[in-house]
Simulated assay, not measured.
Amino acid sequence: MSSAQMHSDLHPIDDALVRRLVAGQFPQWAGLPVVRFPSGGTVNAMYRLGDDMVVRLPLVRGGALDVTMEREWLPRLASVLPTPVPEVLGAGEPAEGYPWDWSVYRWLAGENPEAGALSEPVLLAEDLAGFVAAMRGITLPGAPPAHRGGPVASLDASTRAAIEQLRGIPQEGVDCDAVLAVWEDALRAPAWDGPPVWLHADLMPGNLLVDNGRLTSVIDFGCMGMGDPACDLFPAWNLLPADARKVFRDALGVDDAAWIRGRGRTLSQALIALPDYRTTNPAMANNARHVIRAVLEER
């Protein structure tokens, strides 16, 4: 991550603060090493705690509610999903000048997959489809609306604004007329008219863990909730090559309308991310560039 700040309201977090928080609230872990874990995430800081745990702390106020939601829902989701998800081991509270709740999780091994460097793309596509199908099949009541889970049109203003921003950044080389046409296809696609389904709603490569090319865990459920099932089609364009993308689509039985909405939603996120993170978060910016290329190549 660049030294330039991703957000103007980032709360300062360092190793010493994390050590004080852990020692003050979880004295049984006070002697364990604390080491910042490099992450391309934009909302949370992560610190390894010993060999088997990780401390996750919101960087901005907007991430604070995610902590509470994960504590409530992850234990319930873990029992009905085929893929391991984070396990909360400790519920931290504001202290030492740090203003929000934070959590200690069991460490999940694995690496983030990288688009263009997948060792088993077709098998990974099958794994991802199995996870998405399992999420959709959850019947637990009382879920919140998923972040970005509403109608595609709810993203229109921010998407068009991002396209105009990119017109002013010619060095990025984005064909703004072409991406606008894809976006308008998504707006014209029939809306989801079924009941809302459970969604992870942020299936970015940074929220997936793989080992030997296979999906081992899905993390960061801060956007989860109910909404349009097209929201969980993100991996089709942010990660999978064309042949594996087809496997993913076929495994989920995605119709044309949902595919067009999913493509538009994924593109929207990339278009918004690129101007925001191009100088502050290389991982997010590079993924956004990949999505834009993948979408335009498919169209």
Score class of each variant (00 low, 15 high):
Met1Ser: 04
Ser3Pro: 11
Ser8Asp: 13
Asp9Glu: 05
Asp9Gly: 01
His11Cys: 04
Pro12Asn: 03
Pro12Leu: 02
Asp14Asn: 09
Asp14Met: 01
Leu21Thr: 00
Val22Asp: 03
Val22Cys: 02
Pro27Ile: 01
Pro33Val: 11
Pro33Leu: 14
Val35Tyr: 07
Arg36Trp: 04
Arg36Ala: 15
Pro38Gly: 00
Thr42Trp: 00
Val43Phe: 04
Ala45Pro: 00
Met46Lys: 05
Gly50Asn: 08
Val54His: 05
Arg56Pro: 00
Val60Met: 02
Arg61Trp: 03
Leu65Tyr: 05
Met69Gln: 12
Glu70Ser: 07
Arg71Gly: 09
Arg71Tyr: 03
Leu74Gly: 11
Pro75Ser: 13
Leu77Ser: 12
Val80Cys: 13
Leu81Asp: 09
Pro82Gln: 15
Pro84Trp: 06
Pro84Lys: 14
Pro86Met: 03
Val88Ser: 13
Ala91Gln: 11
Glu93Lys: 12
Ala95Gly: 11
Pro99Val: 06
Pro99Asp: 02
Asp101Gln: 07
Ser103His: 05
Arg106Asn: 12
Leu108Pro: 07
Leu108Ser: 09
Ala109Leu: 13
Glu111Ile: 10
Glu111His: 12
Pro113Lys: 06
Glu114His: 09
Ala115Asp: 03
Ala115Val: 03
Ala117Ile: 01
Ser119Gly: 11
Glu120Trp: 03
Val122Leu: 10
Leu123Phe: 08
Ala125Trp: 02
Glu126Ser: 15
Asp127Val: 10
Val132Ile: 08
Ala133His: 11
Met135Arg: 10
Gly137Asn: 14
Leu140Arg: 11
Gly142Met: 08
Ala143Val: 10
Gly149Trp: 06
Gly150Glu: 15
Val152Tyr: 08
Ala153Ile: 08
Ala153Asn: 08
Thr159Arg: 06
Gln171Thr: 15
Gln171Ser: 15
Glu172Trp: 13
Glu172Val: 12
Asp175Thr: 12
Asp175Val: 10
Cys176Phe: 11
Asp177Asn: 11
Arg188Ile: 04
Arg188Tyr: 03
Ala191Val: 15
Gly194Met: 14
Trp198Gly: 09
Trp198Glu: 12
His200Trp: 09
Asp202Glu: 05
Leu203Glu: 09
Met204Glu: 05
Asn207Ser: 14
Leu208Lys: 05
Leu209Pro: 08
Leu209Lys: 04
Asp211His: 14
Asn212Glu: 14
Ser217Leu: 08
Val218Lys: 07
Asp220Gln: 01
Phe221Trp: 14
Gly222Met: 02
Cys223Glu: 08
Met224Gly: 05
Gly225Cys: 06
Gly227His: 09
Asp228Glu: 08
Ala230Glu: 07
Phe234Asp: 10
Phe234Ile: 07
Phe234Gly: 05
Asn238Trp: 03
Pro241Asp: 04
Asp243Gly: 00
Lys246Trp: 04
Lys246Ile: 15
Arg249Thr: 12
Leu252Ile: 09
Leu252Asp: 08
Val254Thr: 13
Val254Phe: 09
Asp255Glu: 08
Ile260Val: 15
Gly262Val: 06
Thr266Cys: 14
Leu267His: 05
Ser268Trp: 05
Leu271His: 04
Ala273Glu: 04
Pro275Met: 04
Pro275Trp: 01
Asp276Pro: 00
Tyr277Thr: 13
Arg278Thr: 02
Arg278Leu: 02
Thr280Arg: 01
Asn281Gly: 01
Asn281Ile: 00
Asn281Lys: 00
Asn281Met: 00
Pro282Glu: 10
Ala283Val: 12
Ala285Pro: 02
Asn286Ala: 12
Asn287Ala: 02
Ala288Asn: 02
Ala288Leu: 02
Val291Ile: 15
